[in-house]
Write a protein that binds this DNA or RNA. Structure first.
Length: 596
RNA sequence: GCGCCCGUAGCUCAGCGGAUUAGAGUACUUGGCUUCGAACCAAGGGGUCGCAAGUUCGAAUCUUGCCGGGCGCACCA
């Protein structure tokens, strides 16, 4: 995707190359915000090639540069500082309204990408770490999509193994052979019930060696499932879990996976892969089947235990194979916590050797650990925070601050997602519930508020213009003031808009300093999306949107929109701003309600 | 012990394919609502960018070595 500003700058770069008669030019950067300029060209690398001082080169460019896109150029400290002309700015802004997907890129065009958006274990509780992982997964999926990828969301559920044995042991004990006892558990209580059962089984496993043996038997049963009663109970409870997981995923503002893989189905395939490669990839050791990673600078891991059950390692191989068969993707992304980083390297190496057709399609992105700051929440519960408890806390805090009931959910999602997405993926994240629900400063609600504020101005304008005129209410109220004007050249949008051709009325004739600043910030969006896509870094979008809304709030503070002689132009500008903000929030999975 | 990740303002973090005068939020101090939403804006104090060398005209950013913290290293997921 090539946006107007990009094209304009490319033209300027061409001109500068001519002035210096060089073939290559460093990138024209967005100027540091502490300087007044829009863009800057550093001349330091040029200095080496041309054997001149950077400042001399900068001055040479300034003297020679005469381009309609550039209103002003200045040489300072080895940089050429550049200001965009009003006409260039105006035509670039027009794109935002005409392209609803403004910000989308083609960096990943035609790539088929698979991403595991959540990997949860049924039977166990969902805690804040699951929330973080799934929110990051969902947002990365949005970013891949923004990059033009053929994106597929999948998930993986651990429905076999020891943890299932632990849960099932406690559940079966509770039932005492009578499955109708499950009916007593009301649907709202099911997650808590399952969570209690798991905790009970896990506790007994540690304490009692006889129970441990019973649990081991049940764990094996989760694979084979040849006991009818076990199977019946297992399937009901697993369904309860998945219903709950789906509910929570949606509540966090994330999308469900289009294909949900279960360990159950990856198990057989995984075992088969391991067993057919004993000798060339895997080897027997102390009764288990292992992969010796030391040969490759990694460590040894067990794939099939000495009790002849598969481990996560083997099942992951099966999963990779399954994904390959069903999707044949170009890239397949796995999101894991950092403690799984080295684990994943081993599995990937084993996969590379035993399944060469996978090549290096699988990529692991590791996130840090979610830690709670020592707030009242962690001290009260004393342990990991259950995800529903988190929702409750967020909801109460928002209500206490006077949030409208209708938009409570939007606020919760905004606060939670933004708090988790605004920092770089990879490091540990210190989650402070009080800070995350704070409506002030660099927060989700700040952005949502700033959006609602802008929309409310536009709505007000739409109202006044529709009451003045015979009210033929448009389906797009926020563009109503447009109807009172002639079709603006902004909306037709000359492609490159260098302003040579001054035919027709321009919505943006000139810009005040404040308008110019806001406009430049709005137009920075595609540069940011490109960065977020290539680095897989949602936090760039967060930071940008925060700077954008800050810029808007400053503008709003000092400039009147309704009733000002420049009303129409400013409304257009606010509209562009709202559009970009809404687009950006959309990528983050944060709703942008018209009112809060 | 080996490997990976991380040390930037009191706290939470951006900035890291070097480049104009290290930035935000929060907390603290202060000013601004008869005008489009004050969940806002403006101003102030607060930093040996963990330490030390090296590369460079120039390093928070690259290299090396230390120090400090987290995680992983055989049958949990």
């Amino acid at each position: 995707m090539s946006y107007a500003v990009e094209k304009q700058l490319a033209e300027v770069a061409k001109t500068i190359k001519k002035i210096l008669s060089v073939a290559e030019l460093p990138a024209i950067e967005i100027a540091n915000s502490k300087f007044d300029a829009d863009f800057a060209l550093p001349c330091f690398t040029l200095a080496r090639d041309l054997h001149k001082k950077p400042q001399e080169i900068a001055e040479q460019i300034v003297v020679g540069l005469n381009h309609p896109v550039i209103a002003k150029a200045e040489a300072k400290a080895g940089f050429v500082n550049l200001w965009l002309s009003d006409s260039a700015l105006g035509s670039a802004l027009g794109e935002i309204v005409t392209k609803p997907t403004y910000g989308a890129q083609k960096l990943l065009d035609k790539q088929k990408i698979l991403i595991e958006v959540y990997s949860t274990n049924p039977f166990k509780d969902l805690h804040i770490g699951h929330a973080y992982n799934s929110i990051v997964g969902d947002t990365l999926a949005n970013i891949f999509k923004l990059g033009g990828a053929d994106l597929h969301r999948v998930s993986y559920g651990g429905d076999v193994g020891l943890h299932v044995g632990k849960s099932m042991w406690a559940i079966l004990r509770y039932l005492e052979g009578d499955i109708s006892k499950l009916d007593v558990v009301k649907s709202g209580d099911r997650p808590a019930f399952l969570s209690r059962m798991y905790v009970e089984g896990a506790g007994q496993y540690e304490e009692d060696s006889i129970i441990r043996q019973q649990i081991d038997v049940l764990a094996r049963q989760s694979f084979v499932q040849d006991d009818a009663f076990f199977k019946q109970v297992y399937e009901i409870c697993r369904q309860w879990s998945f219903d709950y997981i789906h509910k929570m995923i949606k509540k966090m503002g994330s999308q469900l996976a289009e294909r949900e893989y279960w360990e159950n189905e990856a198990d057989k395939l995984g075992r088969q892969i391991v067993e057919t490669h004993i000798g060339d990839v895997f080897e027997r050791s102390e009764g288990a089947i292992v992969f010796k990673g030391e040969t490759y600078g990694l460590h040894t891991r067990v794939f099939i235990t000495s009790h002849d059950t598969t481990l996560y390692e083997a099942r992951d191989l099966g999963l990779m194979q399954l994904k390959e068969q069903e999707y044949n993707p170009d890239k397949s992304y796995y999101l894991t916590a950092e403690e799984q980083r080295d684990y994943f390297k081993v599995v990937l190496k084993a996969a590379q050797l035993s399944l060469p057709e996978l090549k290096d399609k699988s990529v692991n992105i590791s996130t840090g650990t979610v830690k709670l700051s020592t707030g009242k929440m962690s001290s009260r519960t004393g342990k990991v925070v259950n995800i529903e408890g988190l929702f409750k806390e967020l909801s109460e805090a928002l209500k206490a601050r006077g949030a409208e009931e209708d938009n409570l959910q939007a606020g919760i999602v905004g606060a939670l997602r933004y708090a988790m997405l605004k920092v770089r993926i990879g490091g540990d994240i210190i989650f402070d519930i009080n800070e995350s629900i704070s409506l002030e400063g660099n927060s989700g609600p700040y952005l949502q508020y700033a959006h609602a504020r802008g929309r409310s101005i536009l709505a007000k304008l739409a109202d006044s213009s529709s009451t003045e005129k015979s009210s033929s209410s448009s389906s797009h109220p926020r563009l109503d003031w447009e109807s009172s004007k002639k079709k603006s050249s902004l909306l037709t949008g000359s492609p490159i808009g260098v302003g040579d051709d001054e035919t027709g009325e321009k919505t943006f004739v000139d810009f005040t300093a404040d308008e110019h600043k806001l406009a430049i910030k709005v137009l920075e969006y595609p540069t940011i999306t490109a960065k977020a896509i290539s680095e897989l870094a949602p936090h760039h979008i967060c930071n940008y949107l925060y700077e954008l809304t800050q810029q808007f709030n400053r503008f709003y503070e000092h400039n009147r929109i309704i009733g000002d002689p420049r009303q129409n132009q400013r409304a257009e500008l606010v509209n562009s701003y709202c559009q970009v903000l809404e687009n950006g929030l959309g990528v983050l999975g944060i709703p942008a309600p018209e009112r809060l």
